[in-house]
């Protein structure tokens, strides 16, 4: 069986290589991928959407539908972790009850929050660092359509800040501040903000996600600026979902699904 597998891999690799010989030259400005649609995006994006960051323009406007669905992929990934790992009080947890006493003993042993004793240096550093991290994340989200950045990146940075807090101050304390239910609600609301913007466009009489009609909603804008503003709204939705879902995935994985005791 191993040999069959090796043979398949070799065959696939060989096929891939055969295809590569036929590719356009590396970096060829006249290759189909550079000449056809990309030209349109490069030449027209700023005129049509008033967004200098072309990547964001393609991502959040031309192919915004893909991005909305990719955001929901993050949302689904988080929910999948919940569906599989999260232990809910009920028949499923009966078996775990037996091991609980052992856990309790362990907990008594290292009393003082969960995990190790709180470390003053680490905690102080995190206290100082966290606002900076979050501010930077807001910048990445908010400025995403003008400079490198965007909802996914900003959301990850925000989630990293939350995870840092959970690692230093204990998962239990962090969950008191940012509960599981709130995280799930934020995850859903983030996608809803994105899709809701699209639905609003549809309700106002154009296609789903066609931001140009939203000029009636934002003050002092024209059709093109409305696209730019909507991209910001949409990126905020993405950031909200990515942040809460990554944080909850961490919380689930770190606590073996019972949301009690983290790393």
């Amino acid at each position: 069986m191993k040999k069959v597998g090796l043979l398949t891999v070799l065959l696939t690799g060989a096929l891939l290589m055969v295809g590569v010989f036929d590719f356009p030259a590396w970096g060829d400005p006249y290759s189909p991928a550079n000449r056809y649609l990309s030209t349109h995006y490069v030449n027209q994006a700023e005129k049509e959407t008033a967004v200098p960051n072309l990547v964001t323009a393609v991502l959040a406007d031309y192919r915004s539908f893909d991005t909305m669905l990719e955001t929901s992929v993050v949302f689904i990934a988080g929910l999948a972790i919940f569906a599989i790992l999260r232990s809910i009080e009920g028949p499923l947890v009966q078996a775990r009850k037996r091991t609980e006493s052992r856990e309790k003993r362990a907990e008594k042993r290292d009393a003082g929050g969960d995990g190790q004793d709180p470390d003053l240096i680490v905690q102080t550093t995190v206290r100082l660092l966290l606002p900076t991290i979050q501010l930077f994340a807001f910048y990445v989200v908010g400025h995403g359509h003008h400079s490198p950045g965007g909802g996914f990146q900003g959301g990850v940075i925000l989630a990293a800040g939350l995870i840092l807090v959970a690692m230093t101050f204990g998962l239990k304390n962090t969950l008191k501040q940012f509960s599981e239910r709130r995280g799930l609600a934020f995850g859903s609301l983030g996608v809803l903000l994105f899709a809701g913007t699209g639905l609003l466009c549809a309700l106002m009489g154009t296609q789903f996600l066609d931001y140009s009609v939203l000029e009636a909603v934002y003050p002092f804008t024209d059709e093109i600026m409305a696209r730019s503003h909507s991209m910001l709204v949409v990126e905020i939705g993405v950031a909200l979902t990515v942040m809460s879902m990554l944080y909850l995935i961490y919380a689930n994985l770190a606590s073996h699904g019972d949301m009690k005791k983290g790393l």
């Binding site: 056809y36 406007d61 031309y62 893909d66």
Partner: peptide, 13 residues
């Protein structure tokens, strides 16, 4: 057909 985000097909979805 339905044009997502209102863009003409090869440009949009």
């Amino acid at each position: 057909t339905y044009r997502m985000a209102g863009w003409v097909p090869p440009v949009g979805i």
